[in-house]
């Protein structure tokens, strides 16, 4: 259920734990205590486009690039707000609490908008046990762009389809993945959340390389 948690991280976390953190049960100490300091390790976990340059076949390389992009796309930081259902998930994919709903434009229900709780920046809880995410445009991806429950191949095909990718050309998709600051939140998710692997820059470069290599989806190359 939490494939990205490995024993190494737990050990490191335990080392960081002290004082009030000692209250937290194991599951939560993992979720709560991983901060930005872990980024170096996650960078290692996402390879850049050059790592795939030795794949001679264009389509195969394109596929491999997308699989690498998938490490980001399928991270909880991205998936949580691309739900098929009416409500997002949180943490490592469990139901969002309080039980919010999509509302108009993915901004939340009238009276309980995303902005009722989420401000423009992440805010660390006073108890030090985590944070609430923030971004000026914090909202849910539209239902047409839902990823939860889809295979990576399905998501890939969706990303190529302007009807289901927010009406973006492939070039615009590269720009979105490289520069959109809400996408970028995935790498600075605040205290208590593991960032998406790598960096947004790397993710953007992978997207560029994938598009340049024909934007082939996994399982479709020869």
């Amino acid at each position: 259920m939490r494939p990205w948690i490995n024993r190494r991280v737990i050990t490191t976390t335990a080392f960081v734990l002290a004082g009030a953190f000692a209250y937290i049960n194991l599951d939560y100490s993992i979720a709560y205590s991983l901060g930005g300091k872990m980024v170096d390790r996650h960078e290692e976990r996402l390879r850049g486009p050059e790592a795939f340059s030795d794949i001679p076949d264009n389509a195969e390389r394109s596929e491999a690039l997308f699989r690498e992009m998938g490490k980001v796309i399928e991270s909880p930081r991205c998936m949580n707000c691309h739900p098929k259902a009416d409500s997002p998930t949180q943490r490592e994919g469990r139901p969002h609490t309080p039980p919010v709903t999509r509302g108009v434009g993915g901004m939340g229900a009238e009276g309980l908008q995303c902005s009722t709780c989420h401000g423009e920046e992440n805010v660390t809880f006073t108890n030090g046990e985590g944070s609430i995410p923030g971004h000026p445009a914090w909202h849910l991806a539209p239902a047409t762009m839902a990823w939860q429950g889809s295979s990576l191949k399905g998501i890939c095909e969706q990303l190529r389809d302007p009807e289901r990718n927010g009406d973006r050309s492939l070039d615009e998709l590269v720009e979105h993945n490289s520069e959109d600051t809400l996408v970028g939140w995935a790498w600075t998710p605040g205290v208590g959340r593991e960032p998406a692997p790598g960096t947004q820059e790397l993710f953007g470069a992978l997207t560029r390389a994938w598009v340049d290599s024909g934007a082939v989806c996994p399982g479709t190359a020869g």
Partner: peptide
């Protein structure tokens, strides 16, 4: 706020 932050900053050994 200071009291709560203070509690979060305590390093206790039990």
């Amino acid at each position: 706020f200071a009291a709560q932050r203070g509690v979060a900053a305590l390093q206790a050994d039990w």
